[in-house]
Nucleic acid binder design. Structure first.
Length: 888
RNA sequence: AGGCGGAUAGCUCAGUCGGUAGAGCGCAGCUCUUACACAGCUGUUGUCGCGGGUUCGAUCCCCGCUCCGCCUACCA
C-alpha cells in the first residue's frame, strides 16, 4: 500500500472487500451463483422438514417469506448444531387454481378449453407449467432458503401420482373411501364440488322475506314462512314446524299451495325446526339446502332440483326458469309482491358460504361424489396430539384442532375438473360393476366386458398434499430417505391450513405409515400490512417481498420477519422495521470492518478461553456464553423472535457498543504485549461465534464475512460450529461492569454540563473497595470516558458517583453547576422513593413472615445498595452546592 | 351461537414461572471521537383496557365486563 488512499467507500485493507456499506445485491448474486448444496452428514442425528408446497400458480408472497424464513433458521441452526438436515422442497399442482389459469389463457387466445378435449387441455397445462419453469423456486432461492433441491418434488410427478393412486385404492379396499350421492357444496363458477373446508363464510346483509303459503283447503288462511332464498320456493316440497309448537300443531298433516307454482305440499313436524326463528315455519327445499335435505329424507319428500350446475334456474323453476340465481330471486320477489303473497321484507345480516378460490356463493347440490370416511382416521389423529406425540407451537392451536377433529365430517375428494390425479375407478356398462384399481384395466374385472368407462373426476389437490411428508421421501417404497428422515422433525405452516393440510397429513400419515408424519408443528401467523390489514389483491396493499429484498437486502428482510415473529400474533410489517434490520446488518458489517483493520488473518483463536485475563475479554466471553445458552433455549422452543433479538442485542449493545470500544485500548498496546495478543484472539473467537449466531438469520452477510476472514475452514454454517469454545470462561468478575458504570456516570455529567464528548477532563479516581488497582481502570476510562488522571496532589472537582467509589472531575470554573444540581435532586428523589418502597415492605410483619426468605433477603440487600447509592448522590449534590456557592 | 387470540411508552410490539416494566421506531439535546451519521452519547415517555377476587404483594393467577380481530356453525 504505497498510496495514501482517501477514506472513501473503496478504501480497504482486504483487497477491495470492505466498503463501508454491505452491498447486498452483489453479494447475494455471487453467493446464489455458487449454488452450493447443503451438506449432508451421514452419521449425525437427522433433522427433517418438508416445505409446505406452494402452488405452481404462485408468486412468492409475504406468507411464504415468513414461512420459509422460519424453516431456514431452523435448518441452518440444526446444521450448525451438527445434525444431518434434510429440508425437502416442492410444489403442488393446485388443481382448480391451475386449471383456472390455463382456461383463462386459452380464452384470451379465443379457445374454449372444453373444445380441446381432456387430453389436449391437460397437455396445455403441462406446457404452461414448463413455461413458468422454476419461477417460484428461484424466488425461494433468493430468500436464501437452503433446501435440498435434489429432493424437489411435484405432486403430479409420476412417483407421487403413483403414491396417490395407491392410497386411493387402499382406502377403497379398506372401506375407508366410498362413492355416494350426497349433498355437497358446489361452486357454480368453478363447476366442481368442494369440500367443507373449501367453503368460507362471509358476512353479508341479505333479506329475510315473509311469504304466505295459502292452505289448500280453507278460505284464505295462510302459513307464513320467513326465507332468505325466495327463488327456491319453486322447489319446495313441504313446510315444517316444530312438533311441540302449539301455534302450528293443528296444521301438521294439512296441505298448502306453493306460491309461484300450483303445486300442493304437506306441512310436516320436525324437531330440527327452531320455533324461535322467523315465524317458526320452515320451507323445505331438499335439493337446495343441507338441512332441508336431512328433513326431507326423514319425511320421504323426495327431491326437486331447480338450479343447474352453473347456477341458472332450469325449466322446473316455472316462471323463474332460465334466470341466473340472483335475477331469479328478484323476479320471485316481484311475482310474490304482485300476487300479494309477500307479507314483509327485512334486512338480514347473515353468513353466506362462498368458494374459497373465487368467492362465488356456493350452492348446496345433490350429486354423486367420492368421500373419505373420516371418523376412524380422526380418532387416531386426535390421539397422536392428545398423547403428546405431536406437539403444537403455540399449544393453543390444539383446541382448534380438536374442535375440527371432534366435529369431523366425511371428506368429499372428487372434483369435476381435468387437471389433477384422475380417480382410478371404472364402471362397467354391461354389468354395472365399479372397479377401483392399481393398474388400468382393459375389460371389466367382473364380467370381462370391454364396455368400461373411467370416472372422469380428479382428486382434491389436498388429497395428494395429505401424503406430502412421506410421499416426498419415496413412500410407498421403503427408501433410505424414508427410513432415515421419517417421521419428519418439524412442520412449519400457517394456521389457515391447519384443517386443510396439517390435520389431514396426520390422519393419512398414521393410516398409511402407522407413524406420525412429524413430531412438532410450528404454527405461525399472518403477515399483515403496517395498518394491520390483511394483504389482499383487492385491497391493493400487497407488499412484494422481492421488492423489499431488492431495497434493503435479503438478510435485513429475513431478520425483520424473524424479529416480528412472536408466536400467536399476527405480524404487521412496515418498511421502517426492515430498514431498522438493514441498519443492523450495516452495523454488523462495520464491526467486522473494524476487526479487519486490527486483527491479522493469521491470528489464532483463543486456545484456552478459561484462562483469559483481560477484563473486557473475560466480560465479552461470559456474555457470549450466556447469549448462546439463551439462544439455544429459544430455538429449542421455536422462538425465532427471541433468538433473533438475542443476536441483535448481543451484537449491537454489548459487542459493538462496549467490547469493540474497550478492545481498542488493548489493541493499541505494544506489539508484544500478551494482552494485545489475547485481545486479538478474543476478537477473532467472539467474532467468529457471532457470525455463527447470526448466520441462521443473515445467511448472506455472514457467509461473505466468513469468506473474507476465512474464520472457519468452510463457509459459515456448513460445519458444526456453535459453541466453538472448547472451554467455558468462568464467571467474569465485576471489573468490566464497574468500568461501565464509571463511564456512564461521567457521560451523564458531560451531557448535563454541556461538555463536548471529545474534550478531555482531568479527574481523580476514588475507589472504596479494598485492594482495587486504579491502574486497571484508567486505560478504559481514558478512551471510553475521555478523562485523564489529574496531576493535582489534592484533587478537587465534581463528584461523579458510581457503586463503591466516585470520580472527581476537574471541570474548571466556566461550567454551570445548576443543571447538575437539579439532575442530582431528581436522582436523589428517585432513589429515595425506591428506598421508601422497599423499606416500607420490610417493615410489614406479614411480609417478613409470609414472603419467601430469598425475596426478603433480596430486599435487605437492596436497601443497603440503595442507601449507598443515595449516599454517593447526596455527597455529589452537597459538593455541587458548594461549587455553586463559590461561583456566586 | 360457540371457540380462540389481542388490549403494556406517541406508533409497532416483547416481557414478567406473582416481588423495582423493556426493545425498535419516534421525539429533544450534544457530537463527523481513527468500524459504522444506515452512527455515537445523554435524556424523554407508561393509572401494563375496566370492575371485582385470591395473595404479604397482581400488569402477570381466577371471575365478570367492554372493545378489536380471527376461526367454526345448516338457524331458514
Amino acid at each position: 500500500m504505497s498510496d495514501i488512499q482517501d477514506d472513501d467507500a473503496q478504501a480497504t485493507e482486504e483487497g477491495g472487500d470492505f466498503p463501508t456499506r454491505f452491498d447486498s445485491t452483489r453479494v447475494e448474486a455471487e453467493i446464489l451463483s455458487r449454488r452450493q448444496a447443503p451438506p449432508s452428514r451421514k452419521g449425525a442425528p437427522p433433522f427433517s422438514m418438508v416445505v409446505p408446497p406452494p402452488n405452481i400458480t404462485g408468486r412468492l408472497h409475504m406468507g411464504h417469506a415468513l414461512n420459509l424464513t422460519i424453516q431456514d433458521v431452523m435448518a441452518r441452526y440444526h446444521r450448525m448444531a451438527g445434525d444431518d438436515v434434510l429440508w425437502v422442497p416442492g410444489v403442488d399442482h393446485a388443481g382448480i387454481a391451475a386449471q383456472n389459469v390455463v382456461e383463462k389463457k386459452l380464452r384470451a387466445e379465443g379457445i374454449d378449453f372444453k373444445s380441446l378435449g381432456r387430453e389436449d387441455f391437460v397437455a396445455r397445462v403441462w406446457e404452461w407449467k414448463d413455461s413458468i419453469g422454476s419461477g417460484i423456486g428461484d424466488q425461494i432461492r433468493r430468500l436464501g432458503a437452503s433446501l435440498a433441491w435434489d429432493h424437489e418434488r411435484f405432486t403430479m410427478d409420476p412417483g407421487f401420482s403413483q403414491a396417490v393412486r395407491e392410497v386411493f385404492v387402499r382406502l377403497y379396499e379398506d372401506g375407508a373411501l366410498y362413492r355416494a350421492e350426497r349433498m355437497i357444496h358446489w361452486c357454480p363458477r368453478c363447476l366442481t364440488a368442494l369440500s367443507d373446508v373449501e367453503v368460507t363464510h362471509q358476512d353479508r346483509v341479505g333479506e329475510l322475506v315473509y311469504v304466505q303459503y295459502l292452505l289448500a283447503e280453507g278460505e284464505g288462511e295462510a302459513l307464513v314462512v320467513a326465507t332468505t332464498r325466495p327463488e327456491t320456493i319453486v322447489a319446495d316440497l313441504a313446510l315444517a314446524v316444530h312438533p311441540d309448537d302449539e301455534r302450528y300443531r293443528s296444521y301438521v298433516g294439512k296441505k298448502v299451495r306453493v306460491p309461484l307454482s300450483d303445486r300442493v305440499i304437506p306441512v310436516v313436524a320436525d324437531s330440527a325446526v327452531d320455533p324461535q326463528f322467523g315465524t317458526g315455519v320452515l320451507k323445505i327445499t331438499p335439493s337446495h339446502s343441507m338441512v332441508d335435505f336431512e328433513i326431507g329424507s326423514r319425511h320421504g319428500l323426495g327431491t326437486l332440483s331447480v338450479i343447474e350446475a352453473d347456477g341458472t334456474m332450469n325449466p322446473l323453476a316455472g316462471p323463474l326458469s332460465g334466470l341466473p340465481r340472483d335475477k331469479a330471486r328478484a323476479r320471485a320477489l316481484e311475482i310474490l309482491e304482485s300476487d300479494e303473497r309477500l307479507e314483509r321484507r327485512e334486512p338480514y345480516p347473515h353468513a353466506v358460504g362462498v368458494c374459497y378460490r373465487c368467492q362465488t356463493e356456493v350452492e348446496p347440490r345433490l350429486s354423486l361424489q367420492w368421500f373419505v370416511r373420516m371418523a376412524p382416521l380422526a380418532a387416531r389423529a386426535r390421539e397422536a396430539v392428545s398423547s403428546g406425540q405431536i406437539r403444537f407451537f403455540p399449544a393453543t392451536w390444539v383446541k382448534t384442532y380438536y374442535e375440527w377433529i371432534d366435529n369431523i365430517r366425511d371428506w368429499c375428494v372428487s372434483r369435476q375438473i381435468w387437471w389433477g390425479h384422475r380417480i382410478p375407478a371404472w364402471s362397467c356398462g354391461a354389468c354395472g360393476h365399479l372397479a377401483v384399481l392399481r393398474e388400468d384395466p382393459a375389460v371389466c374385472p367382473a364380467c370381462k366386458s370391454p364396455d368400461i368407462t373411467r370416472d372422469p373426476d380428479v382428486l382434491d389437490t389436498w388429497f395428494s398434499s395429505a401424503l406430502w411428508p412421506f410421499a416426498t421421501l419415496g413412500w410407498p417404497e421403503e427408501t433410505p430417505d424414508l427410513a432415515r428422515f421419517y417421521p419428519t422433525s418439524l412442520l412449519v405452516t400457517g394456521f389457515d391450513i391447519l384443517f386443510f393440510w396439517v390435520a389431514r397429513m396426520i390422519m393419512m400419515g398414521l393410516y398409511l405409515t402407522d407413524k406420525i408424519p412429524f413430531r412438532d408443528v410450528y404454527i405461525h401467523a399472518l403477515v399483515r400490512d403496517e395498518f394491520g390489514q390483511k394483504m389482499t389483491k383487492s385491497r391493493g396493499n400487497v407488499v412484494d417481498p422481492l421488492e423489499l429484498m431488492d431495497r434493503f437486502g435479503t438478510d435485513a428482510f429475513r431478520l425483520s420477519l424473524a424479529l416480528l415473529a412472536s408466536p400467536g400474533r399476527d405480524i404487521r410489517l412496515s418498511v421502517e422495521r426492515v430498514e431498522a434490520a438493514r441498519n443492523f446488518v450495516s452495523k454488523l458489517w462495520n464491526a467486522f470492518r473494524f476487526i479487519s483493520r486490527v486483527v491479522p488473518r493469521e491470528t489464532p483463536s483463543l486456545p484456552r478461553p478459561g484462562e483469559v485475563r483481560g477484563v473486557a475479554n473475560r466480560w465479552i466471553l461470559s456474555e457470549l456464553v450466556r447469549t448462546e445458552r439463551e439462544y439455544r433455549e429459544a430455538l429449542a422452543n421455536y422462538r425465532v423472535d427471541e433468538a433473533a433479538l438475542l443476536v441483535y442485542r448481543f451484537t449491537w449493545s454489548l459487542f459493538c457498543d462496549w467490547y469493540l470500544e474497550a478492545a481498542k485500548v488493548d489493541v493499541d498496546r505494544e506489539a508484544h504485549d500478551p494482552l494485545r495478543q489475547e485481545t486479538l484472539s478474543t476478537l477473532r473467537t467472539v467474532g467468529s461465534a457471532l457470525l455463527d449466531l447470526a448466520h441462521p438469520f443473515l445467511p448472506f452477510v455472514t457467509e461473505e464475512l466468513s469468506r473474507i476472514f476465512a474464520f472457519s475452514n468452510g463457509s459459515v454454517g456448513s460445519e458444526p460450529a456453535l459453541l466453538g469454545l472448547a472451554e467455558l470462561p468462568g464467571a467474569a468478575p465485576d471489573d468490566f461492569e464497574r468500568i461501565r458504570s464509571m463511564v456512564g456516570s461521567v457521560r451523564q455529567i458531560r451531557t448535563v454540563m454541556k461538555i463536548p464528548p471529545t474534550q478531555e477532563i482531568p479527574a481523580a479516581l476514588m475507589l472504596s473497595l479494598p485492594g482495587e488497582d486504579p491502574a486497571l481502570f484508567w486505560p478504559f476510562l481514558r478512551r471510553l470516558a475521555r478523562i485523564v488522571p489529574s496531576s493535582s496532589p489534592n484533587p478537587r472537582g465534581l463528584r461523579a458517583p458510581f457503586r463503591d467509589g466516585h470520580l472527581l472531575l476537574e471541570l474548571g470554573d466556566l461550567v454551570d453547576f445548576s443543571q447538575e444540581a437539579s439532575r442530582l435532586d431528581r436522582e436523589v428523589a428517585r432513589v429515595e422513593a425506591r428506598l421508601d418502597e422497599v423499606a416500607g415492605r420490610l417493615s410489614r410483619e406479614d411480609f417478613l413472615q409470609k414472603a419467601p426468605p430469598e425475596v426478603v433477603e433480596k430486599d435487605r440487600a437492596q436497601i443497603l445498595a440503595l442507601a449507598e447509592e443515595k449516599e454517593g448522590l447526596v455527597a455529589a449534590r452537597e459538593q455541587v452546592r458548594e461549587f455553586l456557592g463559590e461561583s456566586r
